[in-house]
Amino acid sequence: MIKRNFPLIVLFLVFLGLLDFIWQVTPYKAHLSQEDESAVAGPEKSMAFTGRMDMPNLDDIYVLDNSAGRDVEALEKYIQGRAAGLHWLGQEHFKKKGADDIRLGLHLVVDSLGIFTCKEILFSDADDEAFEQKLKDHIEYFWRYKKSENGITDFWIPLRWKAKYSK
């Protein structure tokens, strides 16, 4: 009987040895100096961006040309889905410049391949050319829409970054 159950007995003993080893090992506790503890605490609350990105509704989108025949409601839903990327894009600006709301008006064109082109910034409260250029680059690099057979969709949209979150 011992010969037949020998592999099971060995496996059971190895398992008991591993359990004993786990119970005897003490977990590692890092010892931080006071300088390290302040660094771990994170940035000050005044430096963090606690605002919100307001995306345009269907009523806020002004379509200039829709020769591609795109559904404007679907385009509005697509644009609202890009709020997270724009939210984090605004975070750097708020860390540098302060706590005023930003309002931007963009003139965008979507070609037949679904590639967005930012023609111009119609109005801006940002007074930060680097932020505006990052916004243009972000839109042209990351935003892609459904292809159409031909034509373009040309429209204006307002964007707003609120400095403080409110419902």
Rank of each mutant, 00 (worst) to 15 (best):
I102Q: 01
I139R: 04
F49W: 04
Y28R: 13
D71Q: 13
F12C: 14
E92S: 14
Y145E: 05
P43M: 12
F21S: 11
A74Y: 07
K29Y: 07
I139S: 03
F12Q: 11
G105D: 04
K3W: 06
F6L: 15
D36W: 14
D100S: 13
W143P: 00
F142K: 11
V72M: 03
K162F: 02
I152V: 15
Y141T: 13
F155P: 02
A126C: 05
L89Q: 01
S148H: 06
Y145D: 09
E37I: 15
G105I: 08
P7A: 09
R70N: 02
K77W: 06
G51A: 10
V14R: 10
K95P: 00
A99M: 10
Y141W: 03
V109F: 01
E140R: 08
D65A: 07
P158M: 07
E140P: 04
R70E: 01
Y141P: 00
L64C: 03
M1H: 07
E92I: 09
E44I: 12
N150I: 08
K164R: 09
F155D: 02
Y141Q: 09
H93D: 01
D101H: 08
H31Y: 05
F12H: 04
G98F: 08
L89I: 04
M55H: 05
D127G: 07
R4P: 00
G114I: 06
E44P: 08
Q34A: 12
A39V: 12
K29P: 00
S38T: 14
L8M: 11
Y78P: 01
L159R: 01
I115R: 04
K95N: 02
G90H: 05
L16N: 13
E132T: 11
E120V: 10
K45A: 04
E132H: 08
G81K: 14
L32W: 12
F15S: 14
S166A: 15
E73S: 15
L19Y: 07
K45R: 07
F94M: 07
E76L: 07
F49N: 05
R70Q: 06
A130F: 04
K147V: 04
V109M: 09
L86D: 00
K96C: 01
H31L: 12
P7L: 11
F21I: 10
R70I: 10
A130Y: 06
V110F: 08
H31C: 03
S148E: 08
E73I: 15
G17R: 12
I61V: 15
P43F: 10
R52C: 01
G51M: 09
P43G: 08
L89F: 01
D60H: 10
M55N: 03
F15H: 06
P27D: 12
A99H: 07
I79N: 03
K29Q: 13
Y78H: 13
S148F: 04
K167W: 03
F21N: 10
I102G: 00
E76H: 09
